[in-house]
């Protein structure tokens, strides 16, 4: 999960005075989110007398988050801590692609097509995938879902592509 603390910071992009890069970056990200939220809620009405406007609570929480983010960043500078964890691109990329593919095709192509395609795309996320086995499992799972969701659970899911229904 996390990079072991013992590892030498060979290619650390962080300046030396940042002793806990993980917190440092985390805190900055929180501050960025807070600033974004402050900007996004800036058009909303504030306090009217003593009653809250629509924008009061969001701005309150965003300000709080800004402060907390700053505190985390400061802690990240002052205390010793872990280096940035290593990111792997393969898993996140293919899982995300698979999710996006499902979302884009479910409406027009129906569940059977999009579930199977997404299954195969997701399977690319692991170097251990064996294709024949994966394909068989994918087909079985799709069949299972095709029975479970629309029939057993009664959810309105379209199974076949739209052009085949019409």
């Amino acid at each position: 999960m996390n990079a072991t603390p013992g590892q030498a910071p060979v290619k650390s992009i962080m300046p030396k005075w940042v002793r806990n890069p993980q917190d440092f970056v985390g805190g900055i990200a929180m501050m960025a989110i807070a600033v974004f939220a402050l900007w996004a809620s800036s058009d909303l009405q504030g306090m009217r007398g003593f009653s809250f406007g629509a924008g009061t609570a969001p701005r309150m929480f965003a300000t709080l988050l800004l402060g907390l983010g700053a505190a985390i960043t400061v802690v990240g500078v002052l205390t010793e801590g872990q280096h940035l964890a290593k990111y792997h691109w393969r898993g996140p990329l293919f899982v995300t692609l698979s999710i996006v593919s499902f979302a884009l095709t479910i409406r027009s192509m129906g569940m059977i097509f999009s579930a199977l395609t997404s299954f195969l795309i997701a399977a690319c996320g692991s170097p251990e995938t064996r294709w024949v086995e994966t394909f068989i499992v994918g087909v079985c799972l799709t069949a299972f879902c095709a029975l479970l969701f629309p029939y057993a659970l009664g959810l309105p899911l379209q199974l076949l592509p739209t052009f085949m229904i019409r």
Partner: peptide, 20 residues
């Protein structure tokens, strides 16, 4: 059950679940 088969299944199952 090896993880290489489990994880795509979970992705699909979750996707269908959220969509529904």
């Amino acid at each position: 059950v090896p993880y290489r088969l489990m994880f795509p299944s979970i992705v699909i199952f979750c996707s269908i679940g959220i969509y529904s």
